[in-house]
Design a protein around this nucleic acid. Sequence first.
DNA 1: CACGTCTCTGAAAACGTTTACGGATGGAGG
DNA 2: CCTCCATCCGTAAACGTTTTCAGAGACGTG
Lengths: 337, 337
Amino acid sequence: MSDEPTITTIARRAGVSIASVSRVLNGLPTRAETERRVMSVARELGYVPNSAARSLKSRRSNQIGFAMADIGNPVYLAMVREIQPVLKAAGYRLVLHSTNADVADEIDVLRGLGERYIDGLIMIPLRVTDGHLEMFAAARAPIVVIGSVPEGTPVDNVRVDSRAGVRLAVQHLHGLGRRRIGFVNGPLDTVPGAARSAAYAEALETLGLPYDRDLVEVGDFYRADGARAAARLLERVPDLDALLCANDLIALGALDVLRRAGRRVPEDVAVAGMDDTDLATIAWPPLTSVSLGSAERGRAAAELLLDHLDRDGRAPRTVTVEPRLVTRASTMGEETP
Amino acid sequence: MSDEPTITTIARRAGVSIASVSRVLNGLPTRAETERRVMSVARELGYVPNSAARSLKSRRSNQIGFAMADIGNPVYLAMVREIQPVLKAAGYRLVLHSTNADVADEIDVLRGLGERYIDGLIMIPLRVTDGHLEMFAAARAPIVVIGSVPEGTPVDNVRVDSRAGVRLAVQHLHGLGRRRIGFVNGPLDTVPGAARSAAYAEALETLGLPYDRDLVEVGDFYRADGARAAARLLERVPDLDALLCANDLIALGALDVLRRAGRRVPEDVAVAGMDDTDLATIAWPPLTSVSLGSAERGRAAAELLLDHLDRDGRAPRTVTVEPRLVTRASTMGEETP
DNA sequence: CACGTCTCTGAAAACGTTTACGGATGGAGG
DNA sequence: CCTCCATCCGTAAACGTTTTCAGAGACGTG
């Protein structure tokens, strides 16, 4: 009585079988009188179906996992904001996993797919190891990877041509007359770090600029790391006139350092970030940034996943998002009020 | 065979009963030989326990829900960042609910407690209705509410003396010689909106300043609303010399407006926000803000919940966090580099 | 009146675990 | 050699659903 009511309780009180209760609650055709009785008892008892029992039987949890390195990074945040409503509208709950870019942690999440507590997973691995690939291949539930993944990996994939993104930024800086374009990157053993590193070299070459390894610094993808890396770079190459940062957080760190060093942005040093997060419009000066369509990627990932859940065993699909340069005062001084 | 392996599969292959398999997998005492056989088969098959079955039997889901208005707001984000690792360390997963401050949505989440897909819930309701209170009273699982809740509500509670917070800010502005202190608040029918409104009036009175309703504007808790509200205020009261904003997002909007209007911050208008989010250090000028200890509140909420899960039926507890004023350049010009 | 058809319902099995209970085995102690 | 106890294990029930199957009645038709 004081225990949580189950369909058995209801059945007894309504004088019907549990099968009938289940049918009524699931909207299957039932005699009006039976339906009335069941519904009235159910309401009276405040009945709520037990999700574990339901999941066990139906083999669906109505939950979707989202695994990223750190929810504090605004890029991931922008994605969550898009993913959440899409899933919610489709009747799924969102289970969050913050992995600190730890490979073992990510593998754990993938193993979790076997527990069937989620029906599908959206994941943003910073590094894709053999372990990842094995789990992808063995996975029994749909996975969407945001970020690049080797050709032929059996998962849905949402990617962005970050190479093109870097090119846009370098061309823009070059077009402003900058010739000593520094680059503050994230770790080279990460997928985006590696891609951006290659793209930077390539973009310089396309423009006929020499590749000077002194102009490149590597830190982590956070503001404090960006600040430290920018400081090192600035000390080593005092005649720097532009700085491309591998994400907005790094760029914020760089802005701090430049300000403290008394360099004017953009007059002395033009600064561009990547990801075009909300922070870009909050920073001072407002930050030119390469939009990698995070919101778009989040939405696409959610939609891919739902589609895959609808059509079981569908072939993997890839969605590619186009980068776009959003110029602001940190490179185009004239925009400054 | 190609189906997901269960303990039955393992039992058959290892020539033991499912009970033995379960015992081995749960680390209960077993003969070494049995243990060896079971483990080897389990590993070979890549066995992963089914969480629905486990939950059904054990009546625990190992999931915790977190419900807030909008994950995009950095205050909630700061909390998630603290909550997630605490829960993870204790073996719980985090289920995220974004309710858009919609009352029906929040009630739905509370009803969800009955589904038992979460073992407990951390919630930040912007408005606390009778519906909330009913569900709190009826809830079968521990709930922690971050924010104020009427005396005697049977839930754990983490609160902050926002009244004291507002007072700190107003006193600070007054101490800087400001006498026309505007206030941009959020909706008055929300718990924080109402509290801050009362606190503002009270603080003025304490300081012997007159309460001028022209100095108060109400918008929503977002940047754009903050900008609009600040613009209205500025037009109505051109001789404004300070602006207190009910959260950092509003303050960012206000900074935008002031800049566009050519008012210098802090020389012409000193600006203070509340929440002391990361944005405060990114804004220009860096924003003085009242820290309401979001990280601390998040951690406290997670710990309260875990404690309650450990000790079933424990009496509700309340944790109160002290606000703290963090001064930056938006009020203290001299700090500007 | 017998039959078929249709609608509604109940009994029971199944989903994959955990766990109470008791049976079997083996060794120690008398 | 018997008894007793400890140790390990298997049987079976239980958790709360969904769903299959077949039975019961009602009703129309030949």
